[in-house]
Each structure stands twice: as structure tokens, then as C-alpha cells.
Amino acid sequence: MNEKLLLDHDVYRTNRAKYYPDDLLSYENEWVAWNLDASRMVAHHRDALELWRILDEAGIDSESVNLEWIPPGGEVDCQL
């Protein structure tokens, strides 16, 4: 494991929380790859394997991104 690629959960949390559902509407039902501090969306695609193909082609280390699926509406009000 590359020690430089550790995810700082406090920083990630702060940056990820800056996104409103409206900000994510255009990514609903898609997979997004965040950089390791969630300050930037590196790539996105409806098909996760296609997303990985894009990341691989761009030469992006799989350890340098964190994936998340964006639900319809950008976020759910209540997760059960």
C-alpha cells in the first residue's frame, strides 16, 4: 500500500459534506470517483466497470480514488 495515499477521514468528511443534493443531481444513479480528500470528482459513469476503464486509461491509481454511488435525487432523506 502506498503510504502517501492514505485517506484522511476528517478532511474527506468535511469536503464531501459541502455537496448539496442539487450539486449531485446530474450524477444520480451513477458511480462517482472522488479524490482522496473528496475535494474533486475525478470521473463518473453509470457503469462502475466503465468508470474503472476510464480511470485505468487515464493512468489513475486505484488507491487514489474512493467510489460512491449517487442515489436518485442526489441524496436520500432517510436511509433505512
Binding site: R16, A17, P21, D22, E75, D77
Partner: peptide, 13 residues
């Protein structure tokens, strides 16, 4: 130690 992630829903909770 993992802080909870904060997610913004569309409406106040």
C-alpha cells in the same frame, strides 16, 4: 477512528 460522514438531504431533518 472513523468520523460519521455527513450527507445533505434535500430537506431539513
Amino acid at each position: 477512528r472513523f468520523p460519521y460522514q455527513n450527507y445533505r438531504p434535500a430537506h431539513p431533518i
